[in-house]
Write a protein that binds this DNA or RNA. Sequence first.
DNA 1: CATGATAATAAGAATTATTCCTAATTGAGA
DNA 2: TCTCAATTAGGAATAATTCTTATTATCATG
Lengths: 150, 150
Amino acid sequence: MKSVDITHRLNVFQEACERLGLKITHQRMEIYRAVIMTENHPDAVSVYHRVKKRIPMISLDTVYRNLKLLAKHGLISIVGLSQESLRFDGNMTPHHHFACVKCGMIRDFNSPAIGHLPIPEEVKGFGSPVSVHLEVKGLCATCKKSSRRN
Amino acid sequence: MKSVDITHRLNVFQEACERLGLKITHQRMEIYRAVIMTENHPDAVSVYHRVKKRIPMISLDTVYRNLKLLAKHGLISIVGLSQESLRFDGNMTPHHHFACVKCGMIRDFNSPAIGHLPIPEEVKGFGSPVSVHLEVKGLCATCKKSSRRN
DNA sequence: CATGATAATAAGAATTATTCCTAATTGAGA
DNA sequence: TCTCAATTAGGAATAATTCTTATTATCATG
């Protein structure tokens, strides 16, 4: 990404923080910057090491706290289903998943339309695809109800 | 799932183990059975508790070991991208992922076709979808090369 | 059916990822 | 500038997963 783009995105980020009532701290800015500058979807520890070069006293907890906070506010996202532990699936027939971001509930669904999706040529350049799943994230009906009560 | 179906799947599983040279142990059978009988994509600890009712001395390690082994052989699957830690994404424009199951590399791709997929009505009954990602799992070019060497 | 090679297991220690706790610091509005 | 709630650093705590080792069980073969 070009440095003018980075600057622009940092400005947009700053405005978003103001709008959301999040304080604009040095740490928060650098953590965000590290995420958008890293192409390959870093984990928290990678972000930590990267930010440490600019803020040597940064704590890993601060990195985790901000990454989660920013993800919660939709300023960055978590790759995949954001589960804290591995989950297993005995259904080996083609299907897809709906996952609740709050309680972790996962439901299967099929879709003939999705069944024969065209995988772009580009992807074959990355390697050999083995499986294809559509992952729909959202709030399940139960969690939606309980969050309205608050 | 009906009990005749369970029985049938256990038979198929047993044949698969024979074909793959995996020994048919009591623990392995019960672990597989627990996974296919649980609709909601259990994590390892849930499987452990379920199996413990039938094999009180089962160890958690055995559960993990078998779940991973069965997943490796394609007898069950791991939900999502099978990552061991959370990974973050600063790209908030619509895109999809190719993930290498061996080294964890993730690459983005877009697809206009996937962009306006019809989400089945069924899914709206589960809750409110927020994001939709296609997750393609496979072996990346580099890992494919290095595994051929062995 | 006995037996030996080897895969698999139990139990607990070790490792890794993530979150919590607390005291000190800081950003931003009055 | 002053104040206060939000944020931070640092280390302890927790949770998830893997490793180590001694023992046991499976299954091919005699």
